[in-house]
Design a protein around this nucleic acid. Structure first.
Length: 193
DNA sequence: CGTTTTTGACCAGCGC
DNA sequence: GCGCTGGTCAAAAACG
């Protein structure tokens, strides 16, 4: 791992940037909750900050993942989004399940580890990547189907991110527009901000 | 016509 | 060892 120091520094820088942005977001939310400002206006202000914060953190994860994979572990980012109504009323809850089993490679099952996390949310969210669906599975014994996404930039830029989306069995064709799963790869940030 | 999604087959881990 | 389960592959279909 020749460039590990540089990569770690870059990752720390990105995490710091993400932290700053989220702090700005927190300030914005606190300010507007006191003023009772228009919710729509607040969303307009908060969304770019939220997006950029997520992109910065994802960029940091990408750097750390590529750095780690040079040594020994071929790691991936795996996100499981669940559209099930099993969570809190505010609709967005993150649970880290480091013991949960996920598969790796063709048919190989593995556990969600340090480089994986599970998010329960009522709706797909912009997480800083652009996803391409590569598989779909109806889960046995439940009304849920699971869709498998990988980063669009896997081939040309070595992006290892993957996402598993669980949701009630879809009725009809699943289009990108309907589900609004649209994320931008961190390296394309300069084009979008 | 290039890109993305759908879908059935394949494969490997796991439980019995 | 075998069947079940779930993640991935790849060809065909759909889309823009």
């Amino acid at each position: 791992m020749g460039n590990s120091k540089l990569e770690t520094a870059a990752a720390i820088s990105e995490v710091g940037r993400g932290y700053d942005i989220i702090k700005q977001l927190q300030g914005l939310l606190q300010l507007n909750s006191r003023k009772g400002q228009d919710v729509v206006q607040m969303q307009e202000l908060a969304e770019p900050l939220f997006r950029e914060g997520l992109q910065a953190l994802n960029h940091a994860l990408s750097i750390l993942n590529s750095s780690v994979s040079k040594v020994e572990v071929k790691s991936e980012i795996v996100v499981i989004e669940s559209a099930s109504p099993v969570h809190s009323s505010n609709g967005s809850m993150v649970s880290y399940a480091s013991g949960q089993r996920i598969e790796n490679g063709r048919g190989k099952r593995r556990r969600v580890g340090e480089n994986s996390w599970i998010t329960n949310t009522t709706m797909p969210y912009d997480d800083g990547y652009q996803w391409r669906k590569y598989g779909d599975k109806k889960l046995t014994g439940s009304n849920f189907s699971r869709s498998y996404f990988r980063c669009t930039y896997k081939e040309e830029q070595g992006c290892q991110a993957k996402k598993i989306l669980s949701r009630p069995a879809p009725t009809g064709r699943w289009t990108r527009a309907e589900n609004d799963i649209f994320c931008i790869h961190p390296t394309a940030r300069q084009l979008t901000s």
